[in-house]
Amino acid sequence: MINIENYHRPSSISEAVQLLQQGEATIVAGGTDLTPQIEAGARQFESTLINIQRVEEMRGISVTSGRYRIGGLTTVTDILESTTLAADIPVLVEAADHFASPQIRNAATLAGNLCNASPAGDMCIPLLLLDAQVELVSWIDESVSTRRLALCDFFIGPGKTVLQKNELLTAVEFKQPVAGFSASFQKSGPRPALEISTVAMGFAGVLEAGVLRGVRIAIGAVAPTPLRATATELVLEGRSLNESAIAQAVEAVQEEVKPIDDVRASAWYRTHLSGVYIRRALALFQGVTAHAA
């Protein structure tokens, strides 16, 4: 059993990253992923705990000149209830609505969900569609150092990210999507929430003069990390949305996903669902854009 020797409750990012610089520490916040992992023995506390719940500057949703910023400590409920996001980026709200349970949404933080790096992490999906960046902060040479990284480069494996031990994920940022941007989120299972995705799919794009532009496809639980299905995106990019394009997208996505068999589903079913969902996403997209036009 680990004896906790140091416990810190920083109230600013600067304070937090200075503490992180001092040596190995476990960052704690909402606890919704960490507590069960500790309990199951999948993770152990370091002897230093840094509880970042009081770092107020890491909370909240803001928009500055077309750039959205969601603080790392923002809860999933905050996202779900954000009128700004509901109006501008509904796909984020939709994903939040399918996230775990109300009680977990009330406690789980965005940074926690990203840093946990579950291949099935629901919040990654819409953020990947938005080409979001993560803001990683550390204390280097006696000052706060910030680097930004595309979210798609952040994940490297199940539970693994490029986050360094001295770094804190302080915020997620993304640009206002272009006009006509339409996105959808789909998640498997008969339950609306309290379900780890067998497959979750996000799709986004713009219909420009009858052809698809800026196609983004993100899929959860079909690869070691949340997957940007770039090959399938290419199949659709610049195409008009007809049955042949849809059929090719289905084929491409089923080729591109690399799921495994596990206790929740077989690779076959995840591949099958990926095909079902891309077809539905395109039908949804068609419906929305036709309506808009």
Binding site: P190, R191, L194, E195, I196, V263, R264
Partner: peptide, 23 residues
């Protein structure tokens, strides 16, 4: 309850799915 080679693979409410209110 998924049991493979004598071992229980889903000993939790995440993967052993009892019905909830919406279902």
């Amino acid at each position: 309850l998924q049991i493979k080679d004598g071992k229980v693979l889903n000993p939790n409410f995440r993967d052993y799915k009892v019905p909830t209110a919406p279902e």
